[in-house]
């Protein structure tokens, strides 16, 4: 589904990603962990097509197409979804209208007619139930005045509505209260299928107890320095990142 090869990217001339390799197959859940500033959100941004990032080397194949060649909206329409670490507020734009536009843009891209109002409403209701999303929030303006956790939940609700093939969740767990974390995780588990895949960026092992990953990767200084299974997350929880950093320093050539 997703094949990242030797991906390098820079912001304003500063190299941030320095050779990422990652393969994600349908049905898989990958967790990406790593210290602050290691490049996790940057990776998500590059995959989603944020313009401020310049890809300097490498390739990304998404469902057999060159991802890096597509505009951000086309990536989204192809089935890539990013739940943002910091979702933005768009005042005055109704959540529902926004969702309807998004759903219909994606449908149009796949040659489908716009969804009828009734069908859309039914879908809205069923997903709202599935994600236990507050109906009041649905009727408000897009993230305007939402609390931190509410914004995160709105993003995940959007994910449920848009049914992406690959969803990248950037620290969706931070900011969620204990109950919300459980509810959101349960929702995500219900969305999981053999045809879709998830990349979860997180700092905490706790999320991974709810949504059990097939692989855990550690991103450090723009590279994936260690990959393993869910046990790796436990080990990190216990030991932190320092031991990995030391390993890496030993591996790096003396300058």
């Amino acid at each position: 589904m997703l094949d990242i090869k030797n991906l390098h990217a820079a912001v304003e001339g500063n190299a941030i990603l320095k050779g990422i390799n990652l393969t994600v197959k349908p049905g898989e859940v990958h967790a990406i962990m790593g210290p602050n500033g290691s490049g996790k959100s940057s990776l998500a941004s590059v995959l989603a097509g944020r313009e401020s990032y310049e890809v300097t080397e490498g390739s990304v194949d998404f469902l057999g197409k060159d991802l890096l060649d597509m505009s951000p909206e086309v990536r989204a329409r192809e089935g890539l979804f990013l739940a943002f670490q910091y979702p933005v507020e768009i005042p005055g734009v109704s959540n529902i209208n926004f969702l309807k536009t998004a759903v219909n843009e994606i449908r149009a891209y796949h040659g489908q007619p716009p969804m009828q109002a009734k069908a859309f409403l039914d879908m809205l209701k069923s997903k709202q139930k599935l994600m236990e999303f507050d109906a009041n929030l649905m009727n408000r303006s897009l993230n305007e005045g939402f609390s931190g956790g509410e914004k995160k939940r709105n993003d995940i609700f959007q994910m449920a509505m848009l049914e992406p093939k690959l969803a990248i969740m950037d620290e969706t767990d931070s900011g969620l209260d204990i109950d919300a974390l459980r509810i959101v995780s349960a929702g995500v588990n219900k969305l999981r299928s053999k045809d879709n895949a998830f990349i979860m960026i997180t700092h905490y092992q706790r999320l991974l107890e709810y949504i059990v990953p097939d692989f855990v990767h550690v991103l450090y200084n723009g590279r994936i320095v260690k990959s393993g299974t869910k046990e790796l997350a436990l080990e990190l929880e216990e030991k932190g990142y320092d031991w990995l950093k030391e390993d890496i320093r030993l591996e790096e050539p003396v300058q």
């Binding site: 989603a48 097509g49 944020r50 313009e51 401020s52 505009s71 951000p72 909206e73 990536r75 989204a76 329409r77 979804f81 990013l82 943002f84 979702p87 933005v88 768009i90 005042p91 005055g92 734009v93 109704s94 209208n97 926004f98 536009t101 998004a102 843009e105 994606i106 891209y109 303006s141 897009l142 959007q158 848009l162």
Partner: peptide
């Protein structure tokens, strides 16, 4: 903000429509 436009882009909405939505919301 570029961030607002990008957010809408990421949901499948192109630049032109993104700006329209933001302006009409405003």
């Amino acid at each position: 903000g570029e961030d607002q436009v990008f957010y809408l882009n990421q949901r499948g909405i192109d630049n032109e429509q993104a700006v329209n939505m933001i302006v009409n919301g405003y």
